[in-house]
Design a protein around this nucleic acid. Structure first.
Lengths: 363, 363
DNA sequence: AACGATACCGGTAACGTTACCGGTATCGTT
DNA sequence: AACGATACCGGTAACGTTACCGGTATCGTT
């Protein structure tokens, strides 16, 4: 083990300043009953000795940590990163600091176990509240300040933030149907997430509403990764009567569709229309038409909500529903129309490069 | 404040299992001197009561935390995100968990102060070791397990990981010079970072080596953000004798160059060649030729290094130098040559869309 | 002059865990 | 039969901080 010399404690500061530890503690925490001169002397000593509060000891005694924990299954996927950006923004505006905790590649006992463990660990030990992203677990201890983003259930018992997945899905489908598409492939996401189910339901209902047949052959199920986007679209596009459009239930899978289309020599949108879901930053480079669910904004709102809970302020609503918005770019075309759907001409990928962040974030 | 009921402690478990707290502790920590039957009974009780160790208490007593802290100024910029991906990968392979700490938008006392504070806080309180990204502070307490990525100094007193910035810069410049460019604009980054200075030095030396004049007018100084990439390139491209190529010292600033070029009606690479530095994911969508510094890999290596330090294993080298590599895409062209530099034809942006991750990560 | 209010500070205990010491029961060995 | 080795367990103290109680000095008020 790494040997470390004893660090400077509040006792050392007290001795050096000629006061008791209690007084140092009061000075540290900005209590009123410390004489101005004493306060100054203590702060000087703290500076000289390089003292910093031992968070573990403080938290054990006072149960205050000024820390918010963010639990994510993994850090390296766009959804998580976007959430983090929003969380970070809210943190910067608050008195809290951020602690990002990843369950990593779960080594033992499965994700549900890991989630419960970490939530308990964080709420009890080192953070005041917890935000959990795309959890597997449906219910957590309701008397702990915890909020989920994209929770397992539609009407969770814990406070939660999620997008209007059903509405967004219907909107995307309506758009494709309006463009004249009748055979629309669907690539589903992780089935254990309610968001997946809602999007699929939207797909089905939109077809029903338009009196279009639902062909189960056109419904493929992925897991939100580009890999399954590839395998699913390969399957869909190999069908004898292949779809003229594909609705991928997230952008990463839509990226897989782009890749397979290129492999198969299909041009987007001339030969195939594609719609995604999420509006991750990559989408604008691809010119992908997608449903923006304002991921970063969800992180922002969720953070504000935990802070409220921690401070005992009642929430306006237990569940915050983020309004989705269809962002139309260049990956769709009216069926049989040589021109781009927006009436422009030219290679869509060229126009796709829009660095100004169109369809970006709400402010 | 949020009211929380007293949580389950090791005492409760002890009572329920009919043993002492010591024994529960031993069972928890997998010590050998616990009877198999006792161990099982304790684990059952732990499960029933939903007990989890209070990390604060454990850490205070045992000084072990199995946690590594990652300190970054901000979470929302590509460099930081890439580092995090690498760190996360190494963490997943280890017995440690990850704690990401951001200094956020520093509210008081400046970044240097915040950095020192957080480092001390993390090493003393809640983590076993710390990785700090692009620090402002040059030296940290050498007897604490801390490692910097992209440190302030070239030969830091603390262990560090950085790319071969000078070499990468020279390589990029050699490439442009080889393509016949003589007036090459340069956009510098944050001056307080040694990496910036090394890149600038590479720029100068490459010109010297090629017997090309160094025109100070062509050297603009940004701060690694797209905004300064825009302002600097606007300045450079407005010069009476404008450069035929621009070397932006990171990709985000290169993105600014793309934007300004579009505004001014300059085609890339036909009218202007651009090279970046970093190889962030966005670069491949832009078809940006850039110097890959394997950011994620730097995070990976840095993490392995802290873990070694924590475990008392001596490091092979105090400073790890990540070899850069020039990734040639479509943003450069030989001067006066109507064809693309790689001999292909067609809109570069079109070909830029390479989803397969060319120029990606080392495995 | 006596009293209460106020400002300021110190001492003690406690947060929940684990390191350390030491103790008992059991069993094999001579 | 006596002893040592071993397995297993409990008690105590300590990690560094802050909550809480209570105490003194000072000063204004009646």
């Amino acid at each position: 083990m790494y040997k470390k010399k004893r660090s400077v404690t509040i006792q050392d500061v007290a001795k050096a300043a000629g006061v008791s530890a209690s007084t140092v503690s009061r000075a540290l925490n900005g209590k009123s009953d410390v004489a101005g001169e004493t306060q100054e002397r203590i702060l000087t000593v703290i500076d000289e000795l390089g003292f910093t509060t031992n968070l573990a000891a403080r938290s054990m005694r006072s149960h205050k940590k000024n820390l918010i924990g963010l639990i994510m299954p993994d850090i390296a996927y766009p959804f998580a990163i976007e959430v983090m950006k929003g969380v970070n923004r809210a943190i910067a505006e608050s008195e809290f600091d951020l602690l990002v905790y990843t369950t990593g590649s779960v080594r033992k006992s499965g994700r549900a176990y890991a989630e419960r463990k970490y939530v308990s660990l964080l709420t009890k030990s080192i953070s005041d509240g917890v935000i959990i992203v795309a959890p597997v677990v449906g219910e957590f201890n309701t008397d702990e300040p915890i909020i989920s983003i994209d929770p397992v259930m539609s009407n969770p018992t814990n406070p939660a933030v999620h997008a209007t997945n059903y509405h967004g899905s219907v909107e995307a489908m309506d758009y494709l149907i309006e463009l004249g598409h009748k055979r629309i492939g669907y690539i589903g996401g992780r089935v254990e997430l309610e968001s997946s189910n809602r999007r699929l339901l939207g797909y089905r209902d939109a077809l029903k509403k338009a009196n279009l047949p639902i062909d189960e052959e056109l419904i493929a199920s992925g897991d939100f990764t580009t890999e399954t986007g590839i395998s699913c679209s390969r399957m869909l596009l190999s069908l004898p009567n292949r779809p003229t459009a594909i609705f991928a239930s997230n952008d990463q899978m839509a990226m897989g569709v782009f890749q397979v289309a290129e492999e198969m020599g299909l041009r987007i949108p001339e030969d195939l229309s594609v719609v995604g879901f999420d509006n991750i930053p990559e989408s604008k480079y691809l010119g992908l038409t997608t449903v923006d669910q304002f991921i970063s904004e969800m992180g922002y709102v969720a953070t504000q909500m935990v802070i409220k809970i921690i401070n005992g302020i009642p929430l306006d609503q237990q569940t915050y529903r983020m309004q989705t918005r269809l962002v139309i770019r260049n990956s769709c075309q009216a069926l049989g129309n040589p021109k781009n759907s927006d009436g422009s001409i030219g290679s869509p990928q060229f126009r796709a490069i829009d660095l100004k962040g169109e369809g970006g974030e709400r402010q």
